[in-house]
Structure formats: C-alpha cells, structure tokens
C-alpha cells in the first residue's frame, strides 16, 4: 500500500463509521450541531494520532514489545485513557462551552472501538510514520462522517448550521418558504437512529449499483470473448 492509498482509505473505502460501523455512540449522541461534530472530530483526531504514534513507537523496541505482550491491551487502554484525559482538561480550560455540550462523550473516546482497534490492528505492526498517516486518515474519515450526519440533523431539526460559537448560518427561510417549521424529530434521539440508518442505506445502495455495474461489465467482456 502506498502512502497516498494509506491516507485516502479512511475517507470512503474503510470509513470507520459508515463502512466499519465503529464509534457509533458519539456519532448518534453529539451530532445535534455541526460545532459539536467539529469539536468531537478534533478531539478524536488528536487522541487517535497520538495513540497510534506512541503505540507504534513502543512496539518498535523489540524488548519493550516482548515485555508488555501479556498485558498489551491494558497498556494501550491506559495510554488512550490518559490522552483522552489530557484532551478533556485542555477542552475544559479553553473551550468550556464545547466541553459542556459534548459532556461524557469526551471521556468515552477511551472505549471507542476505533482507537483501540487501530492500536491493536495497525499501529502495533507498522512503522511510526505509517501509523501517523493511518491515524490522520481514520480520524479525518470519522470527522467527515460526523459532519455529514450533523449537517442533516441540524438543518432539518433546527433550521440552522452552527459552524463555531456564534458563527451560525440561519436557513430558516427555507422552511418559511415551504410553510413548515423545522422538524424537531431530527434533533431527538429517535431522529439520530433514523438519519444514520438512511445514510447507511444510501451508501449500501451506491455500493450495490456499483457492484451490479461491475458484474454487467464482466459479463459483457465474457460475451465478447
């Protein structure tokens, strides 16, 4: 795999949320506004990149690798938990509003399957530079997924798009034009499941039609032969 392929895989091919279906808890809980998605994404990228770096660094020393082998999962969890706590403290100090609205889900990055999964499956077996690229790619892919879901939910549920702090795009005119009010269903918990379900269905439909086209092409090739 080249470095470019490694970087691009997290966006579509191996998107952690849409394809691997990992980290669904925060994806449903905090996607009520775009700002939350950005905040979560930044925290997540930081934790993932740092944990990938540290874990691949530890594993590059052969002696250390053998030493931690029996308790490696516990060691990884400790490292991830402390990175998460660092993010939490920095966020509480400098971005208190965002910290409040993300709530317990910052701490829960610790048990997010993506971080531990990447540590065990990728970072522990690859070089530091590859692991960093992997972390950035997966982190950005996850953030992109969060942004897509939160855009849909915030626009349909509230009629606004909050980019950061007071910077807000007000699109309620669209709803007024159609003589309806924003559908608050989409900001509720039930709406979260619905939006993720529909987005996944669209992904699956695109994949299905692509597969069908490929099959068709192969068939034609065979017929030509």
């Amino acid at each position: 795999m080249t470095k470019k392929e490694n970087f691009l895989k997290g966006f579509i091919k191996e998107n952690p949320l849409f394809v691997l279906l990992l980290g669904t808890c925060p994806a449903l809980a905090i996607t009520t506004s775009l700002e939350n998605a950005f905040g979560m994404g930044i925290a997540f990228i930081f934790v993932l990149v740092m944990s990938n770096t540290i874990i691949s660094l530890i594993n590059s020393f052969k002696k250390l690798k053998e030493l931690i082998q029996p308790v490696r999962i516990a060691v990884y969890i400790v490292i991830i938990a402390s990175l998460v706590t660092i993010v939490e403290m920095i966020m509480q100090a400098y971005l208190p509003d965002l910290y409040n609205s993300l709530g317990v889900f910052i701490s829960l990055i610790t048990v997010n399957c993506i971080v531990l999964g990447r540590a065990e499956a990728y970072a522990s077996q690859n070089t530091v530079s590859d692991s960093v690229i992997d972390g950035i790619s997966m982190g950005l892919g996850y953030t992109l997924a969060l942004i897509i879901i939160s855009l849909i939910r915030e626009f349909l549920g509230n009629g606004t798009i909050t980019i950061w702090g007071d910077l807000q795009i007000n699109l309620q005119g669209v709803f007024e034009f159609l003589h309806i009010t924003p559908i608050s269903f989409f900001t509720s918990s039930a709406g979260a499941f619905m939006v993720l379900g529909i987005v996944l269905a669209i992904m699956q439909a695109i994949k299905n039609s692509k597969d069908a086209k490929e099959k068709e092409a192969k068939k034609q090739e065979k017929e030509v032969k």
């Binding site: 279906l21 509720s188 918990s189 039930a190 709406g191 979260a192 499941f193 619905m194 993720l196 379900g197 529909i198 996944l200 269905a201 669209i202 699956q204 439909a205 299905n208």
Partner: peptide, 17 residues
C-alpha cells in the same frame, strides 16, 4: 436490498426510541 442488515435495524431502533 439497500436497507437490509444494519440500516433497517437502525430504522427499527428509531421507532423504538
């Protein structure tokens, strides 16, 4: 076909919610 598996499960979860 597009809804089979996880997507339809999520829609069901939404109705449960």
């Amino acid at each position: 076909k597009a809804m089979s598996g996880i997507p339809i499960a999520l829609v069901v979860a939404s109705i449960l919610a």
